[in-house]
Design a protein around this nucleic acid. Structure first.
Lengths: 182, 182
DNA sequence: ACCATAACTGTCCGATCGGTCAGAACTGAC
DNA sequence: GTCAGTTCTGACCGATCGGACAGTTATGGT
């Protein structure tokens, strides 16, 4: 064996990213990664100071890219600011799709392993939000609302009193869905 | 001791919800919950068949409420369908805010424990998306976009080819932010 | 061929966790 | 007071995990 150090590190990160994205961080043991790579658990700890260091190294590129984007738009304002930020942010989430996914698969695994069948409910909710349409624009917008409301409602950032928060979430969601409220 | 069974179950669920929402499901041990309740770990397992059963029982009301909402809007269509779904969904996320939060705190804890400082970056991103505005409507919309893009980009639901997905995410986000693209 | 160094591994350890079980403590009905 | 049934607990178990460490194997420069 004894591959080059950098190649080995790359293989470890690749396996870790794939396994984390399927079973989550805590749901993946060092032994799992070692087996996937084809080396011993001790070898992982020779190349990385600990399990968390692997995790950190996986997310650092995404973090750096986000920081770079924010620096890039720091000087802008008004329409240009918003547009560039949105486009850059969307591109980042697509580029680092797997890295983001690994953050959620911990949840996904938990929510499915038991009799909770959130998948089916999420699907029905998506259908309703899309107005039963199957067209990609409507589906994408429905996903945006599903995720946006979910996260915004759960945030502890006291952005506004609950009544205002509720009203603005509804208005924003309807805008997202391109739906002029009656 | 020997409280009434139902009162005990209530206390356990209350403590579990609070602890799960702070340290996450896997980050909270049965001993943690027992200490918080003021009983033994074995006592928890007398009232609940296992750790997952506690988790399930915590999320079941939210799941039932969502199912009820979907049944309620099942017969609607067009504008009424979308509006009622959005309002109902927003209300649900606010009502079950703590339950949703417990799903995420596993992530939050992970993302902060190391040198990754996602919080500061998320704050800067929020500012940019809101066009540096501090007004609640702009802030809420920025949160909706931040969460919506994050989740939509990470979903494995093949809703559209990547180019279409990207374009529609950008269009949706700009609509959410009430920003007419140039 | 030799050897210093890098790469790698088998084995062990302490800690933690979810869960079991026999029995103690408490309760209310009689 | 007695007793059956409910509630509760300390002690223990097996499994798993992240990590430490001494020792082995491969590598590349000389």
């Amino acid at each position: 064996m004894a591959r080059s150090a950098s190649a080995m590190r790359g293989q470890i990160l690749e396996s870790a990213l794939r396994l984390f994205a399927v079973h989550g961080f805590r749901g993946t043991s060092l032994q799992d990664i070692a087996s996937d790579v084809g080396c011993s658990k001790a070898s992982l700890l020779y190349h990385f100071a600990g399990k968390e260091k692997i995790f950190t190294e996986l997310l650092t590129p995404a973090q750096d890219a986000l920081a770079a984007l924010l620096d890039r738009v720091a000087g802008l304002e008004g329409g240009r600011l918003v547009e560039e930020t949105v486009v850059g942010y969307v591109d980042l989430t697509l580029r680092f799709r797997r890295e983001i996914r690994l953050l959620f698969e911990d949840i996904a695994e938990m929510s499915c392993h038991q009799d909770l069948n959130v998948i089916e409910l999420a699907d029905r909710l998506l259908d309703a939000l899309a107005g039963r349409s199957q067209h990609p624009p409507a589906r994408v917008a429905a996903w945006m609302v599903l995720g946006g409301v979910f996260i915004t409602g759960a945030t502890d950032d006291e952005v506004a009193p609950d009544e205002v928060l509720r009203a603005e979430m509804i208005r924003s969601a309807l805008r997202t869905l391109d739906h002029t409220p009656s």
